[in-house]
Design a protein around this nucleic acid. Structure first.
Length: 633
RNA sequence: GCCGCCAUAGCUCAGUCGGUAGAGCGGCUGAUUUGUAAUCAGCAGGUCGGGAGUUCGAUCCUCUCUGGCGGCUCCA
């Protein structure tokens, strides 16, 4: 029997040789890193016997598939621990996730004590190096073993008849599972339970909630320690922490989910607005402002009453129900409809930065990342069908320019026709093909989510990750063939006939709130000079240098540079420290030397040494950094 | 909204086995006038998140409400 390996090596084995054994003969030095194998395209345990000629490759923790196998094995270990802690707990499923894994249990609400007990049981198992043993069973055997667990019985019933039923044993714990798994629990010394919560889903909505235990696994304890350290560091970058330190925003009990923007935070908002507005001007947008409240009928027309009513703030007026707008669409539609329109006006690009209100459930609020009042860099572009492509191309260029400025990496997600959709399938196909073509040409990574489009059209969502690797959806570009129809919008074409425009709903940064939340964490509070609430802090060495400081201050005012001049009550060292902690991009010290020479001593954020520059050099340097919106000072 | 946890000074936190509280930072005042990450001293800040209950007595125990955190769900 011959086994072919990834480097082309051929290994002669007797039938029944284990996959792990074969791999160890191939690469004895690396064998300790192999946690599973791929045998003829299928992931298998290292213990799996090789029974014919074929191709064999190792899996390590560095492989995505290998990582998932370890996470899933970790989930089994957690299940073993929980069942020891709470014997009546019924395990359901325990898949790997992006970060780690979870395991859902049908059980009374868990307590922190349950987790402690489970943790010690898991530790014991890891120290005992219990092997994961695979067994294939008949349906009857399996049904007998899991007779007490209706969830597992359902999975058994759902297994296709031609697929074997397998279980994995870890010590005395047996779980229904396809596998594969790591060879033994020693591989799981870096497993950590992150927390638990009740989960509600369509399946469990009616019955009592399942309890989900989440965790993460690494092959070794030091790797886990490193992960936990990175997590602790992430907490220091939390936008809520930085927002408080830098006086950016706050929340109060009196208005849960509604941010208060403080002066420093408002500077950030205004800078973003300026940045976006420059683009809008260059691309011939027009800005509008429309009402915050509309009568119910408008939302019935748009379809939002049906789909979104429970998330709207409502109010009564003259026996009619009004809703605070959760998006800007109605205003733009009504402006378009307010008079006869010609094809010569298209594309008509209407931008609106209005406060939107969404009644988000209390449990979902999360700092600036999920709020009840928000502002989007929103616009509605009214086009003919053959203008759509050029608009989308321009938008993706703007996405590139914007996210490059912030040094954020982004990717796209194309969401296509959902099961229930409005309009003709052929129109959808054409629109989707067009979007995909534009995406392909952009050169940026994208993925397709079939069936995830809005009911009125396909869309491209923009995802960014912060510096800690967490993904966030920000902007979205949506094609809409339906709402214009529902609002009975039309323009007169060159042919003299009336046509319904297509609307491109688009927001690029998403909302100021969420974008600034992510950006705060991305930059760790070290704002690019052009955004920094305080761009320059001037530190006169002693009181006698105050006049020189005022002189510099006047020049800074003329340059429209945001600055502060400190008093001299505190020591210079303390004021430098304080400026550094406040992440001020430029700290200027003025003392005898500088006054005599007409220079400034500049300390650039993050550098230890001060540089001496003429005032003019300093001012023009800062001005240029700001003008070019450079990321670093 | 669901599950768990949390709520003490502006901030970060300590504390009271039930006898109404303390530190550091910040703030204010004074002294110091300082050369690139913390000068010194003094002072003022708290019905211990709100309400109810148990108790001679509750910041501490119980219930409840509100808000926050971690998840779930959701984001048209």
């Amino acid at each position: 029997m011959t086994v072919r390996l990834p480097d082309g090596h051929r290994l002669k084995c007797t039938a029944g040789t284990g996959a792990g054994e074969a791999l160890a003969r191939w690469k004895p030095d690396e064998a300790s890193r192999f946690l599973a194998a791929v045998w003829n395209g299928r992931a298998v345990d290292l213990a799996a016997p090789l029974d014919r000629d074929g191709e064999l490759a190792p899996l390590t923790f560095e492989d995505r598939a290998g990582r998932e196998i370890l996470q899933h094995s970790a989930a089994h270990l957690v299940a073993k621990g929980i069942v020891e802690a709470v014997p009546e707990a019924l395990p359901t499923v325990g898949p790997p996730t992006e970060e780690g894994f979870y395991y859902d249990f049908d059980v009374r609400p868990l307590t922190p004590v349950d987790l402690e007990v489970a943790r010690s049981a898991m530790d014991r198992s890891v120290r005992a190096r219990e092997p994961f043993v695979r067994r294939e069973l008949t349906r009857e055997e399996a049904e007998r073993i899991f007779a007490r667990n209706p969830h597992k019985l359902r999975y058994i019933a759902e297994t296709p008849p031609d697929e074997p039923i397998s279980v994995y044993e870890t010590g005395r714990f047996v779980d229904l599972c396809r596998g594969p798994h790591v060879p033994d629990t020693h591989w799981l010394e870096g497993v950590h339970i992150l927390g638990f919560s009740a989960i509600t889903s369509e399946k469990t909505e009616k019955g009592p909630a399942l309890q989900r235990v989440r965790g993460v696994g690494f092959p070794t304890a030091p790797q886990l320690a490193q992960f936990l350290k990175a997590r602790a560091e992430a907490e220091a970058r939390d936008h809520r922490t930085i927002g408080q330190k830098q006086d950016l925003f706050f929340f109060t009990e009196e208005a849960p989910g509604f941010p208060f923007w403080l002066p420093h935070g408002m500077v950030l908002v205004r800078e973003l607005e300026k940045f976006v507005t420059e683009h809008l001007d260059a691309e011939h947008y027009s800005e509008i402002r429309t009402p915050l409240l509309f009568a119910q009928g408008v939302y019935e027309t748009s379809g939002h009453w049906e789909h979104y009513r429970e998330n709207m703030f409502l109010t009564e007026l003259d026996d009619r129900t009004f809703g605070w707008k959760p998006m800007n669409c109605p205003g733009a539609m009504l402006i378009f409809r307010s008079r006869a329109r010609s094809y010569r006006e298209l594309p008509l690009r209407l931008a609106e930065f209005a406060p939107l209100h969404r009644l988000e459930a209390s449990g979902t609020l999360n700092g600036l990342l999920r709020v009840r009042e928000l502002v989007q860099d929103d616009a509605h572009i009214f086009v003919t069908e053959d203008q759509v492509e050029a608009e989308v191309v321009t938008l993706l260029e703007w996405v590139k320019q914007a996210f490059t400025t912030f040094r954020l990496e982004w990717s796209y997600e194309l969401s296509t026709r959902p099961a229930s959709f409005l309009g003709e399938a052929a129109d959808w196909d054409r629109a989707e093909a067009m979007l995909e073509k534009v995406l392909r040409a952009s050169g940026v990574r994208y993925r397709v989510s079939p069936g995830e489009g809005a009911f009125y059209g396909p869309k491209i969502d923009i995802h960014i990750r912060d510096s800690l690797g967490r993904p966030w959806q920000t902007g979205t570009i949506q094609l809409d063939f339906q709402i214009p129809r529902r609002f009975e919008l039309s323009y007169q074409g060159a042919d003299g006939k009336l046509h319904v425009p297509v609307v491109v709903h688009r927001t690029i940064l998403g909302t100021w709130e969420r974008f600034l939340g992510v950006l705060t964490e991305h930059v760790g509070g070290r704002w690019p000079p052009w955004m920094a609430p305080v761009q320059v802090r001037v530190l006169p060495v002693t009181e006698k240098h105050a006049a020189a400081a005022s002189g510099l201050a006047e020049e800074l005012v003329q340059e429209h540079i945001r600055f502060e001049v400190t008093g001299t009550e505190d020591s210079l060292a303390k004021r430098v420290r304080s400026a550094e902690l406040d992440r001020v991009p430029y700290v200027v010290v003025l003392g005898d030397r500088e006054v005599a020479e007409g220079t400034v001593s500049v300390r650039v954020r993050g550098t230890k040494e001060a540089r001496t520059l003429s005032r003019a050099e300093f001012l023009s340097g800062v001005r240029e950094k700001i003008r070019r919106r450079e990321f670093d000072p």
